[in-house]
Design a protein around this nucleic acid. Sequence first.
DNA 1: TAGAAACGTGATAAATCCTCACATTTGCAA
DNA 2: TTGCAAATGTGAGGATTTATCACGTTTCTA
Lengths: 213, 213
Amino acid sequence: MDEKVAAKADQAAIASPRRSPSQQRSRERVERMLAAASALIAEQGSDAMRMGEVAERAGVSIGSLYQFFPDKRAIVWALAERYTAESQACISAALKDVGDKDGLRQAFSGLVDIYYRLFLAEPVMRDIWSGTQADKALRELELADSRANAEFLVAVLKRLRPDADPVELETTAFLVWQMGEAAVRLAISVDRDEGDRLVAAYKRMALRELVGE
Amino acid sequence: MDEKVAAKADQAAIASPRRSPSQQRSRERVERMLAAASALIAEQGSDAMRMGEVAERAGVSIGSLYQFFPDKRAIVWALAERYTAESQACISAALKDVGDKDGLRQAFSGLVDIYYRLFLAEPVMRDIWSGTQADKALRELELADSRANAEFLVAVLKRLRPDADPVELETTAFLVWQMGEAAVRLAISVDRDEGDRLVAAYKRMALRELVGE
DNA sequence: TAGAAACGTGATAAATCCTCACATTTGCAA
DNA sequence: TTGCAAATGTGAGGATTTATCACGTTTCTA
C-alpha cells in the first residue's frame, strides 16, 4: 500500500503533477490521449502537435487532457518513457547471457541494427529523441536510460576483461552507447546508402573499442 | 556587384527573407539585436528568450527586429552561423599543414580540447547546438558544417593513407566528427571529472580510427 | 532639394497554452 | 438502496507570446 502510494506520488512528481488515473474509465481515456498524441507526432512532429487537436482526436475535452498531464511536454515525456522501458528490457535480454567476445560481437551488432531500423521505421521515436536536447526532462530521461544500458554493457565487459579498470570500462561503455545513438540519428538524417555505411562504420569502431582488434 | 547581390539574395533566402541592412545605422542596430539575443540566450536559453525582451534590450522596437529577422529562429540561426564560420576557419587552419600521423594526433587532440573548452565556457553555443535537432534549419547548418569539417580531415587522411578507399575515408571522417560533437555535448552534461574522462576516451577512440593503433 | 528607398514604430491580430468554476459519474459505507 | 465524497469531465476564457502592417521618419542619390 505504502509502495503504491509512493510510486504514484513519484510518478506524479515527474510525469504528471496532476491526477493519476485510478478508475478504469480514466485509464482508458489516458490511453486514448497518448494514442492521439502519438499519431499526431507521427504526422506533424511534436512541436506542431496542438493540445486542442490531441483532445479532439482522443475524444476528450482539453480540460481532461490537463487533468492527467501537467503540460504539453509531459505527454511527450510519457511516450518517451514507454519507449525507454521497452528498449531497456530488449537490451537487457540481448546482453544478459553474453559470455565471450564473439557473443558480444553478435549481440551488439544485432542491437545496433534493431535500433537503426526502429529509428527508420518509427517517426515518433525519431521526433521524440531528436528534440531530446532541448527539453531538460527528456534529456535527463535519455541520460538515465543511456547509463542503464551502458551498465548492461559494463556487466558483460567485466566478465570478458575482469582485470580491466572498472571506471574505464564504465566510461567506455557509456561513451560507446551515446555514440551509437548519435550515429543512428546521423544515419537517418542522410540518404539510406550513406546511413548504412555510417552505421557499419560505427559498429566497427565500437566493437574495436569493446572487444579489441 | 553581381556577387554581392547573389550573396545577399542567398543569405536572405536562408536567414532573413526580410530586409538586409544596407545602411551603417541599421547594421549597427542589427548588431545590437544579435548582442541582446546572445546575452538573453546565455541567461535563460533560446527557448525562454522573448522577442520583446530582445527588442527592449537592444533598444529597438519589436517591429525593427522583425524587419531584419523573419522570425525568432532566424536570430538563433544567425548566431549559429557566425559560430560555424569562425570554427571552420579555426579547424581548417589547424589541419591545413598536417603532414604525418603524429601531426594529425596533435592537431586533432588540440581541436577536441578547444571544442570542449568552448562548450564549457560558452552557454550560447551550448544552447544553440543543444536544440539543433529540433530545428530543421539548424540541423541542416550543423550537417553542412560537419561535412565541411570532415572534408578537411579527409584531405589529411588522403595524404596519410593514399591507398585507402576514398568513400570509406569520407564515411570515417564524417562519423568521427559527428561523434566528437556528441561526445562533447555528453561531456558537458555530466560532472567535470566524468566529462574529462569521456573526452579523453573519445580522443583515443577517434585517433585509433584515424591513424591506426 | 525632391523623390525614392530604407528604416523605425507600436498597437494589435492571431495562435496557443493552460486554468478554473462548475457539472457529472463512480465507489463505497451506512 | 441511499447519500456523500472523491474522482472525473467540460469548455469558455485568461494570459502569454509571436508576428504583422499601416504609417511616420531618416538617409541616399541624382
